[in-house]
Design a protein around this nucleic acid. Structure first.
Length: 423
RNA sequence: GGAGAGAUGCCAGAGUGGUUAAUGGAGCGGUUUGCUAAACCGUCAACGCAGAAAUGCGUUGCGAGGGUUCGAAUCCCUCUCUCUCCGCCA
């Protein structure tokens, strides 16, 4: 959510930026400016009225003390008038504030200047790559066949217990999950992140803070009776730890890492790329979150991207980093890098991580600020990234490391799995 | 699930209808100082108006929302949360 004052001062720049994101409802920008100016007028008027009321109340008190009843009564009439006026003004102001808020939450975050033009994933820009694409032996198969052959995960069993998209990991498949989680967490700790284990259900305010609400209800599982939502990512509870918090500048950057299961309804995505572990409703992920000074946040974004690249390299997977074009970015992000790994058996790139800088978009919603040297508070920047999400990593590991003898486990994982090959 | 107590600023804590949320402490900034400590001064939320800015003025803020009153931290109603005891329970 942008600040109304910022929009009023940078209207043209905001419109241009939003256009890059392929945002259509540009009239909202004008509406925001207009409503905000009305709000300020009302506020000014109300403040003046209340100032007079307060003045009168003080005088009435004095008069009563001095025993001048008649004069006091006279002032009371004036006070009653003012009360009526201020009540009306207050109603109008509340109305304007509400309307302003309703408009503001519909505006996406304007993308960073370096974001490429474009409306679809083809226009994303490759900015880095690593590893090499393996040449598989002729009998190589996709991960869903491998999972079955080596009893690593059972999708049909998940359907029986819950529904499609809820895999049951079994035997060495389950251990591999645990090994990856542990490895990712250990790497995050080495990189200076502090670990947290957050709740997996969140309330409405929390879902609003990171931008899931309003509007994206359909992507989350909801507990109707208590109005809680199952988290789609640990980003939501972890970032909201700092909702309504004023940090000291010296505490920045705040670095947190959390493992959590993630729950996503993925409404409207059926039929395409959903085979095996490519798209599931419940999956495990280690998330890294940073809260950073606005002047350093882009530097931090690069650092986070490097961290993720390091993980992929250690897992011996071929990867590339894409800078998302305006039209492919999420609502809340100002700049997003997607990490993709090549799935040799499916012959396509799978998105395994998304690292984003949200600038003040989330912090404004959450009122997450820091106090600088000048003792003034200002909004902090929030960033987060998957480091990493498991299912597609597992898919890529199985496919890329398969040999006629079995699936080779990368060296860094062996201490965690306790086995070197799945056969 | 039952009963009781409570919620005041960054923290502690006073305040039962009358100007300004007392007082103490922490943090930060400043003055003083050879350095440290200490002392002293200031500051520590949001919004509005004026100003290039420093800043000044005003309004709001005592868990949330409503009400009574010229005037509410204080009185009334609704809700939320916390703590204590009992019951149940991994």
């Amino acid at each position: 959510m942008l600040q109304a004052g910022y929009i009023a001062e940078n209207k043209e720049a905001v419109i241009t930026a939003l256009r890059k994101k392929r945002f259509k409802e540009l009239h909202l920008v004008d509406a925001v400016v207009e409503i905000d100016s009305l709000r300020r007028k009302l506020k000014h008027h109300l403040d003046t009225t209340l100032a007079e009321s307060n003045q009168i109340a003080r005088e009435v008190g004095e008069l009563f003390k001095e025993g001048k009843k008649a004069e006091a009564e006279q002032l009371k009439t004036r006070a009653a008038e003012l009360k009526e006026t201020s009540k009306n003004l207050n109603d109008e102001l509340t109305q304007a504030e509400l309307q302003l808020h309703e408009h503001l939450v519909l505006l996406p975050n304007p993308p960073h200047a370096s974001v490429p033009e474009g409306g679809s994933p083809e226009q994303n820009e490759k900015v880095a790559e690593g590893g090499s694409i393996p040449t598989l032996f002729p009998e190589a198969v996709p991960h869903w066949d491998l999972m079955e052959r080596y009893r690593l995960a059972d999708l049909a069993l998940g359907v029986k217990i819950t529904g499609a998209g809820f895999p049951v990991y079994t035997a060495r498949g389950a251990k591999l999950q645990r090994a990856l989680i542990q490895f990712f967490l250990d790497e995050a700790l080495k990189a200076g992140y502090e670990e947290v284990i957050p709740p997996y259900l969140v309330n409405e305010e929390t879902a609003f803070g990171t931008g899931q609400l309003p509007d994206k209800e359909a992507q989350m599982y909801e507990m109707k009776m208590d109005k809680y939502y199952l988290i789609p990512t640990a980003e939501v509870p972890v970032t909201n730890i700092f909702r309504d918090v004023i940090l000291d500048e010296k505490e920045l950057p705040v670095k947190r890492a959390a493992y959590s299961p993630c729950f996503r309804r993925e409404a409207g995505s059926y039929g395409k790329d959903v085979r095996g572990l490519n798209r599931v409703h419940q999956f495990d992920k280690v998330e890294i979150v940073q809260i950073q000074h606005p002047e350093k946040s882009y530097q931090t974004l690069e650092e986070m991207a490097k961290h993720v690249q390091g993980l992929l390299t250690q897992l011996e997977l071929p990867w590339r980093m894409m800078k998302l074009c305006g039209g492919d970015m999420s609502f809340a992000s100002a700049l997003t890098y997607d990490m993709e790994v090549y799935s040799a058996a499916q012959e396509k790139w799978l998105e395994v991580s998304s690292v984003s800088n949200f600038e003040t978009f989330q912090s404004n919603r959450m009122k997450l600020r820091f106090r600088g040297k000048d003792n003034k508070t200002q909004l902090a920047h929030t960033l987060n990234g998957s480091a990493l999400a498991l299912p597609r990593i597992v898919a890529a590991l199985l496919e890329n490391h398969q040999t006629p003898e079995g699936i080779r486990i990368p060296k860094v994982l062996q201490p965690y799995t306790g086995f070197e090959i799945i056969n």
